[in-house]
Write a protein that binds this DNA or RNA. Structure first.
Lengths: 133, 133
DNA sequence: GCGACGATACTCGGATAAAATATGTCCGAGTTCTGGCGG
DNA sequence: CCGCCAGAACTCGGACATATTTTATCCGAGTATCGTCGC
């Protein structure tokens, strides 16, 4: 079990956009180069983020992707869910009469992790980075 | 990102063995039937648990799998690690000079989850079940 | 009665196959900016 | 000087191709148990 590379790219892209924050959109090519992915593939990932309402795309010359106004409130979990989907880690495949206790344990563990990811926003991370620089 | 079905089977099998606890080994066939998996596949999964030192196998007639003596201390995390491996959820694919802050956040979230799974033992779960029954 | 022997019921582990998912590529279509050209 | 127009620079999104992982099956080999047969 691992997070997909797509999630990796999505997180890095969001961080990049949040750190750069010019109001001008940033082209896919530039970001793809930086992360060593093909532009078309990255674009596909970013489309998911657009649909999730985190960023917006601008067509045409000087087009690209740009954070939406509400970006300060976006958490890690939001991004991860946008890419990986919101399905839970575990599905008990067996139907024993009562609720599956194994599933309860695993899901509550998952909830612990999600809680942590929900409390981390991109904007906080950017602040920390700027202190370091 | 999801836990594999193999993990699912492994957890259920361990719980079953812990709940049954006859000193006689239990055959794969019986457990495979219960979980609706093919015996050979389940056997392959159980081999991993054997290698991890959680259960032991007995060949021959009346053979099967049996918990080892230390089973009371086995946690959910031990079982999951035995099946899924111990690699972490996230690997930053990009080499920015400093440590990747994204990775730090995700890994500390993962740690929260693992902590929870480490504190849940099969034997505790069995106790709870017995109260319910 | 006792020990050897063979049939039986298992597990073991490697080879292989099928299926699902993740990753990546290609291309046609639509959109916006830019620069040049004509009025 | 001003507006129109064509081309360049983009993104969009679907169809397609490849790689990786997961899930599953098959089968030959090894091993312990049990019953039987011969002594």
């Amino acid at each position: 079990m691992k997070y997909s590379k797509a999630t990796n790219y999505a997180l890095h892209t969001m961080l990049f956009l949040a750190a750069a924050t010019p109001n001008k959109p940033v082209g896919v090519q530039q970001m793809a180069e930086q992360q060593e992915v093909s532009p078309t593939y990255l674009s596909k990932i970013l489309t998911k983020l657009v649909k999730a309402g985190m960023i917006e795309s601008a067509s045409g010359a000087n087009g690209g992707y740009r954070l939406k106004r509400n970006w300060e409130t976006i958490s890690f979990l939001d991004i991860i869910h946008a890419i990986e989907g919101t399905a839970s880690l575990f599905d008990c495949s067996l139907d024993h009469g009562t609720e599956c206790m194994i599933m309860q344990v695993v899901l509550s563990a998952e909830e612990k992790m999600e809680e942590h990811l929900r409390n981390q926003t991109m904007s906080e991370l950017v602040k920390k980075m700027k202190i370091v620089l």
